[in-house]
Deep mutational scan, measured.
Amino acid sequence: MTEYKLVVVGAGGVGKSALTIQLIQNHFVDEYDPTIEDSYRKQVVIDGETCLLDILDTAGQEEYSAMRDQYMRTGEGFLCVFAINNTKSFEDIHHYREQIKRVKDSEDVPMVLVGNKCDLPSRTVDTKQAQDLARSYGIPFIETSAKTRQGVDDAFYTLVREIRKHKEKMSKDGKKKKKKSKTKCVIM
């Protein structure tokens, strides 16, 4: 069974824990209790493949930012979460993405942009803004509501699919490099 290491990042209060708990335990946590770091595991079937999701729910508070490099190193894919009623959390996505790329030393890291709290009427981040940002990053965008469960499975499952595509691409690139290195030079 394939294991996928997913990391949920975003500013404090955007609903990272609520999304994760909704996926794992099928219930909505409405009281806000700032996370330092929590880890969850769940076995699911995605596109006919049974897999184990190892999900790291991270601290959004700035005082825990020193811990970010460590979990970013171990993560295979990242859910970059903002709240649709919090423009600052949307603007912060850029910083999370840049930090992930720096730590992973790669421009090509599996990510999904997630606009959470889409059940709320007080939207300050337009869907088109988020779609445009995701398009500019070359990553999928999904709106979710941890409260109603809308888009929750889709967000995590899409990230797994992005990781699969990335692994497939990397193995193809690896095979191309191996083929090239088999060419021999004969000096007579």
Rank of each mutant, 00 (worst) to 15 (best):
T2K: 13
T2E: 14
K5P: 08
A11S: 10
G13F: 11
K16C: 03
A18G: 09
A18Q: 15
T20S: 05
T20F: 00
I21L: 04
I21D: 02
L23I: 11
I24S: 05
Q25R: 04
Q25F: 02
H27S: 10
D30S: 13
E31Y: 13
E31R: 15
E31D: 12
D33A: 01
T35Y: 00
T35V: 00
T35A: 00
I36T: 00
R41C: 04
K42N: 08
V44R: 10
V45C: 11
I46H: 11
G48H: 09
E49I: 04
E49S: 13
L52P: 07
L52F: 11
L53I: 15
L56A: 01
D57F: 00
T58Q: 00
G60R: 00
G60A: 01
Q61G: 08
Q61V: 06
E63G: 04
Y64E: 02
D69L: 06
Q70P: 09
Q70Y: 08
Q70H: 08
M72S: 09
M72W: 06
M72A: 11
M72E: 10
R73V: 10
R73P: 07
G75V: 04
E76F: 04
L79I: 11
C80W: 04
V81P: 06
V81H: 12
A83M: 13
T87N: 06
E98Y: 02
Q99F: 15
R102H: 11
V103H: 04
V103E: 14
K104R: 15
D105A: 06
S106E: 13
S106W: 13
S106C: 11
S106I: 10
V109F: 11
V109S: 08
V109R: 05
V112P: 02
V112S: 01
L113F: 12
V114Q: 02
V114G: 01
K117N: 12
D119F: 11
L120F: 05
S122C: 09
R123F: 07
R123Q: 13
T124G: 10
Q131E: 11
Q131K: 07
D132T: 05
L133W: 13
Y137K: 08
I139G: 12
I139K: 03
I139E: 15
S145W: 04
A146Y: 01
G151V: 10
G151L: 13
V152I: 11
V152Y: 11
D153A: 08
D153E: 09
D154R: 05
A155M: 13
F156R: 00
Y157N: 08
T158V: 07
T158N: 06
L159C: 05
R161S: 15
I163R: 03
H166N: 05
K169R: 07
M170I: 03
K172R: 03
D173S: 08
G174S: 06
K175P: 08
K178D: 10
K184A: 07
M188N: 14
